[in-house]
Design a protein around this nucleic acid. Structure first.
Length: 87
DNA sequence: TATGAGCGT
């Protein structure tokens, strides 16, 4: 088993004011995003501060991690890493 | 209203 990161990424520590459109736009230039999901709160209808992104290939996913992990987005440092359920 | 590690409707 080599370094398999999967195509699904877990993105956390996002700004509470970040919307799905922003979320999707920041991952689009790094590859073809097949799935972009921001976890919302059923109570307030707002973001929980994290979400999931899926790319077409692991290479794009890894590229997005290195490009956005630990980066400052919207004034906040975000964390991007492979999701646990990466298939 | 605001909040701040986490793996989801």
């Amino acid at each position: 088993m080599a370094q398999r990161i999967g195509t699904k990424l877990f993105v956390s520590r996002l700004s509470f004011y970040t919307t799905k459109d922003q979320f999707k736009n920041m991952f689009s230039p790094f590859g073809q995003v097949t799935e972009a999901n921001l976890v919302m709160d059923s109570r307030t209808g707002r973001t929980k501060g994290f979400g999931f992104v899926s790319y077409q290939s692991e290479d794009e996913a890894l590229k997005a991690i290195k490009a956005l992990n630990g980066r400052i987005i919207a004034g906040r440092i975000i964390f991007v890493e492979p999701a646990k359920d990466n298939k």
